[in-house]
Amino acid sequence: MHFETADITGDRLPLFLLFLSFVITFLTTRLITRLIRAGKGPFKNNVRGGVHIHHAVPGIILTVAGAFVSVAVDGARPGAEISAVMIGIGTSLVLDEFALILHLEDVYWSREGQLSVQVVCLTMAGLGLSVLGLNPLRSDADDTVTIGPVALSVNLPITIACLLICVAKGKYSTAAIGAFIAPVAWVGAIRLARPRSRWARKRYSTEKRERARVRAEAFDKRYGSWGLDVEDLVAGRPTDDGQQTQPAAAT
Score class of each variant (00 low, 15 high):
Val234Pro: 01
Thr28Met: 14
Arg37Phe: 02
Thr206Ala: 15
Val230Glu: 01
His103Gly: 00
Arg48Gln: 06
Thr29Phe: 10
Val131Glu: 05
Glu231Ser: 13
Pro238Gly: 07
Gly79Glu: 06
Gly88Pro: 11
Lys208Glu: 13
Val85Cys: 08
Leu134Gly: 02
Trp226Met: 13
Pro247Thr: 10
Ala248Glu: 15
Phe16Trp: 11
Ile53Trp: 09
Arg211Gln: 15
Leu122Trp: 15
Leu129Gln: 09
Trp199Arg: 03
Leu20Thr: 13
Leu228His: 07
Val47Pro: 12
Leu228Gln: 15
Arg209Ala: 04
Ile181Met: 06
Leu134Trp: 13
Ala65Thr: 11
Leu15Asn: 07
Met86His: 05
Ala189Phe: 06
Lys208Ile: 03
Thr25Cys: 10
Val184His: 03
Gly128Phe: 10
Ala235His: 11
Ala185Tyr: 03
Leu132Asp: 01
Gln244Asp: 14
Ala125Pro: 01
Gly79Val: 08
Gly188Asn: 02
Ala216Ile: 02
Phe22Asn: 05
Ala216Pro: 00
Ser21Leu: 03
Leu100Lys: 15
Lys40Pro: 06
Ser173Ala: 12
Gln114Asn: 12
Val230Leu: 14
Arg77Val: 02
Phe180Glu: 03
Thr5Tyr: 08
Gly170Pro: 04
Asn155Glu: 07
Asn155Ala: 15
Phe219Tyr: 11
Gly227Phe: 10
Tyr204Pro: 04
Lys202Leu: 08
Gly126Asn: 14
Gly128Ser: 04
Ser92Thr: 12
Asp142Tyr: 06
His54Leu: 09
Arg196Thr: 12
Met124Trp: 13
Val131Pro: 03
Ala249His: 08
Trp186Tyr: 13
Leu192Gly: 09
Ile177Arg: 07
Thr206Ser: 15
Ala212Asp: 01
Pro42Ala: 01
Asp232Arg: 13
Leu104Ser: 10
Thr146Phe: 10
Ala176Leu: 07
Leu228Glu: 13
Glu207Trp: 11
Leu233Gly: 02
Leu129Pro: 10
Gly113Ser: 02
Ala6Met: 14
Ala125Gly: 14
Leu104Thr: 04
Gly75Met: 13
Glu217Ala: 10
Glu97Ile: 00
Ile181Trp: 09
Leu20Gln: 10
Gly113Met: 01
Trp109Tyr: 15
Val120Gly: 07
Gly66Ile: 09
Leu115Arg: 12
Leu132Glu: 06
Ile181Gly: 06
Arg198Cys: 04
Val69Arg: 08
Arg203Thr: 12
Ala72Cys: 01
Asp11Gln: 11
Ala185Asp: 02
Thr9Asn: 15
Ala249Gly: 13
Leu129Asn: 09
Arg215Trp: 05
